[in-house]
């Protein structure tokens, strides 16, 4: 069974005077272990789609299944708890809590999950090793480069043992080398540990590394290709 199933989803923003149809009739399934890029011009609906997949927002029409749960059946604190235990997030920037060290940022998510302090510390250290930041456990985010911060965010997402990780333009604020480095780490995790990644991007080079590319245009899926 696919870990994500999107059925007839529309997203219409109605809050301002003009009605904006951000997504229209999206149907989509994502399997475990995918490394999928969502691409498209600015305003095509990439962020909107990722927000819906992550349970951060709800569709106007249609429904979305994650694992064996239909997201529309979860509300409020149940939905937050579902995200905590099932979905990893990496945002474009400022992912980390500035007053916590890299290690503590990774630990925090496990603490929210109720993992014991001893295990937390160990896992956080392991995850930072995986993203190549073994020696930065005690560094505050302000002392890390943008690329390092994004890698800590990946480590944090990994530490929660999610079904998949959503990353909205994770490389947008990075220079070419850092972007490349981040992508390599994600690819490595995907290939060797089976971590499912769904990320959006503008960047042609990032796009090229994806194994599946979903192209959005004006809120519709224009193409969905394996490469």
């Amino acid at each position: 069974m696919a870990i994500i199933e999107v059925v007839n989803v529309d997203k219409i923003y109605n809050d301002s005077e003009v009605k904006v149809t951000a997504l229209s009739n999206i149907n989509l399934t994502i399997e475990k272990g995918e490394f999928t890029a969502i691409v498209g011009p600015s305003g095509s609906g990439k962020t909107t789609l990722l927000n819906l997949l992550g349970g951060l927002d709800s569709p106007t029409n249609g429904k979305i299944r994650v694992g064996d749960v239909w997201l529309n059946e979860l509300k409020g604190s149940k939905l937050i708890d579902f995200r905590l235990r099932n979905i990893g997030f990496v945002f474009q920037s400022y992912n980390l809590i500035p007053v916590l060290t890299a290690g503590e940022n990774v630990e925090l998510i496990m603490q929210l999950q109720g993992v014991s302090a001893r295990v937390r510390k160990q896992v956080a250290a392991d995850m930072l090793v995986k993203v190549g930041l073994a020696d930065r456990f005690a560094s505050r985010p302000a002392k890390l480069s943008g690329g390092q911060q994004q890698r800590v965010a990946v480590a944090r997402a990994l530490a929660s043992k999610p079904q998949f990780i959503l990353a909205d333009e994770p490389t947008a604020n990075l220079d070419g080398k850092s972007a490349e480095n981040l992508l390599q780490i994600m690819e490595h995790l995907n290939r060797n540990e089976g971590v499912t990644f769904i990320f959006s991007t503008h960047d042609q080079r990032v796009m090229n590394r994806a194994r599946r590319v979903i192209l959005l245009e004006d809120g519709r899926i224009k193409s969905d290709t394996l490469q």
Partner: peptide, 16 residues
């Protein structure tokens, strides 16, 4: 605000 948003997104209950 952004930090609060990130925390709630990754799974921190608002009450906490």
């Amino acid at each position: 605000m952004h930090e609060f948003g990130v925390l709630v997104a990754v799974g921190m209950q608002k009450i906490k």
